[in-house]
Write a protein that binds this DNA or RNA. Structure first.
Lengths: 223, 223
DNA sequence: GTGCCAATTGTACTTTGGTACAAGGGTAAT
DNA sequence: ATTACCCTTGTACCAAAGTACAATTGGCAC
């Protein structure tokens, strides 16, 4: 009897996902959470879940921070990110941070079911694989940002988690606590991150990394 | 013979603005620049211009940094911000940072002319004054951010400039250089900013302030 | 096995960042 | 003119950030 956690702050969404889960698994035990704290608590008590459906936006968590912390504390539990958006960059980043799948809320129920089965079987799922395979060159303008993206991709998984937490303005001490490592280690990671990204302060790294997420809307934001 | 500087990296835009300037002034001397460095150079040589039309997005400057530096170095020259966007928050921030006007590129030529005359006469111009007078409550959700915006509004002009430069990831030393003040002074401002914004590190201030600009697109970015 | 690399941690050190306190000059309002 | 506020700067001190070097562990590949 597989244990599946559904974490989303919207009851309606949880209901819809629950339906899909019931179609995808045989007599699943469905655990619902409306906030990140509940998820952490649940995972602490049951140790490992067979699958975690995680919404990106929940009370207490705005972006990838929840994913980062869960992946760090409970790496054995496969996480599928649920999101209202399906921006390729978000998808790539979620997968880079250790998610086993990325399911936009607009996905047809049948495809959601298939995706859940796929992930449960050890695979990874992302929307319309083809479009993502080629990152869509987009020759105009933002060459500099693409360079930066390339550099971000040279970061190790743990370093990306650190960068993610950096982006929330946390101190080294707080990051160490969240990832359950020594502050020294955080410093080592930060130092390495700064070198790889070719910047000379955490603030710059945050600003640069922040732009990557913004770029999705750059066409709207010109000017 | 009034000296008017038009700073925009797009030749077509410069042309259109030049037409408007010629309609608004009597035999203006129009100086064109495609990048911020040229503007600074020009201002250094002529001292004060009668009007500066400044595009927000130019090579070397992405946001308000150019405005901030120009206002700091050459406060006597009135600046009108030209932008492809007309988000009320951008408008408010530009004016808060010392711009005498904010003209969206979509503005009809006749209105641009009127706006330029208005500013040259010592007034300030913003698009559809009415809509901006009331900041559009927007009761849903983002109460926390509104709180933060309120706090940003308690910052003094100079402190806003510092915050703006903080947002580019600069070191205190660099900010001191840009604003031509001592590093000690920058520290004093930063310290005050952190208190007013109720955060405990520059990085957090940058993250928070960054969200204000993002919020314009929050409806697209849910998830 | 050997080698490579991610991850971890420690020590020790330098540089930024940030606070606290004090103080002088400028401007605007009462 | 007195108050108030902003901007400025200095000194001094403490905390956080970042670097450099060295070492251990574990996984993975050849």
């Amino acid at each position: 009897m597989p244990q599946i956690i559904i974490a989303d702050d919207h009851p309606m969404v949880r209901g819809a996902l629950a339906l899909a889960v019931e179609s995808a698994f045989d007599q699943p035990e469905i655990l619902e959470c409306a906030h990140l704290a509940g998820v952490m608590q649940l995972l602490e008590s049951i140790g490992v879940a067979d699958l975690l459906l995680l919404d990106l936006r929940m009370p207490g968590v705005d972006g990838f921070e929840g994913l980062v912390r869960i992946r760090s504390q409970f790496p054995a539990t496969p996480v599928v990110v649920i999101s209202a958006l399906e921006d390729p960059r978000l998808v790539r980043e979620a997968l880079a941070l250790g998610a086993m799948g990325f399911i936009p809320k607009s996905t047809p129920r049948a495809e959601i079911v298939a995706a859940l089965v796929l992930v449960a079987a050890g695979g990874t799922y992302r929307p319309d694989d083809l479009a993502l395979a080629e990152p869509a060159p987009d020759p105009k303008g933002r060459a500099a940002d693409d360079d930066f993206l390339q550099r971000v991709l040279t970061l190790t998984p743990q370093q990306r988690r650190v960068l993610q937490l950096l982006g929330t303005g946390k101190l080294n001490k707080e990051i160490a606590y969240d990832l359950d490592i020594a502050e020294t280690t955080v410093k080592a990671h930060v130092s390495s991150i700064l070198h790889k990204l070719r910047v000379y302060s955490r603030t710059q790294a945050v600003v640069m990394a922040g732009r990557l997420h913004l770029d999705s809307f750059a066409d709207v934001a010109e000017g």
